[in-house]
Amino acid sequence: MSASELADLAEEEEQRKRRAPWGVIALVLLTGLALIRNGSGEFDVGPPQPATAAAADSRVPGTFSGSAAPLSFSEPERVRIPAIQVDAPVMPVGLDTEGWVGAPPPEDPNLAGWFTGAVSPGEKGTAVVVGHVDNKSGPAVFYGLGALKKGNRVEVRRKDGKTAVFEIYGIEVFEKQNFPGDRVYGSKGTPELRVITCGGGFSKQNGYAGNVVAFARLVEVR
């Protein structure tokens, strides 16, 4: 193993020590707990759901429309998804006392959360941004997430002044009882992003049955 490869391994190990292990988050979700619990679902027309054709494909990073080198750590400030008219500030969220991934206050419908237990958007690894699908007043920041298509872009402005641009390569809805934590959160060895909200069927007793997950890879830095 070369010196550079050893250095990369050491850096990844140091990052792992500083951040919550993905295995813990995956287990939390595999037990059927909701990522975001405050969606009301009580509207005449529910949020759009991903089409079967939008499932994540297996393309390697080099087959995307572009590529970009990983960035260093910098907290995200804002997320834009032009295809569904999202332009929202981002706040940090962690795990709550019950082990749930936190979410932004539901009272603010136009607010997203970056999970601090993962990498920052643009770093090597899988960054995670979450947000509500709705609240008691109506649709919230990621209400339209299920309508995204492959090739749509997600732009994340960071505190270092750089904007990490990600290309969607899949959009799926997963049942909470069978949430594939390793597949969703596992590092692919490249800078990736997951944008997650509630989705699937809804009942007043149990809330949303699943989570909508957008899979994206870094393709540009501005």
Rank of each mutant, 00 (worst) to 15 (best):
L9M: 13
E5T: 11
A3N: 15
F179T: 04
R80F: 02
S187V: 02
V119N: 02
G117D: 06
N152G: 10
N211H: 09
E75V: 12
G146V: 00
L218Q: 06
K162T: 13
L29Q: 06
T190V: 15
G122E: 01
F179P: 06
G94C: 07
E155W: 04
E107K: 10
V221S: 09
P82S: 13
R194D: 01
M1L: 14
P89F: 11
Q205K: 14
G186F: 00
L95W: 06
L145D: 00
I81L: 10
D182L: 15
P106Y: 05
V221H: 05
G138T: 09
D44C: 09
G138P: 12
M1Q: 13
T163R: 10
G23E: 14
A10Y: 12
V221M: 11
E192W: 02
A209W: 05
P47M: 01
P180I: 09
T126D: 08
I84D: 04
G189E: 07
L30I: 01
V154K: 02
P76R: 09
V24P: 00
E107Y: 05
I81K: 01
L9T: 07
G131A: 10
F179Q: 08
P121G: 08
G102C: 07
N211G: 03
R19P: 03
A20G: 13
E13R: 14
D182V: 14
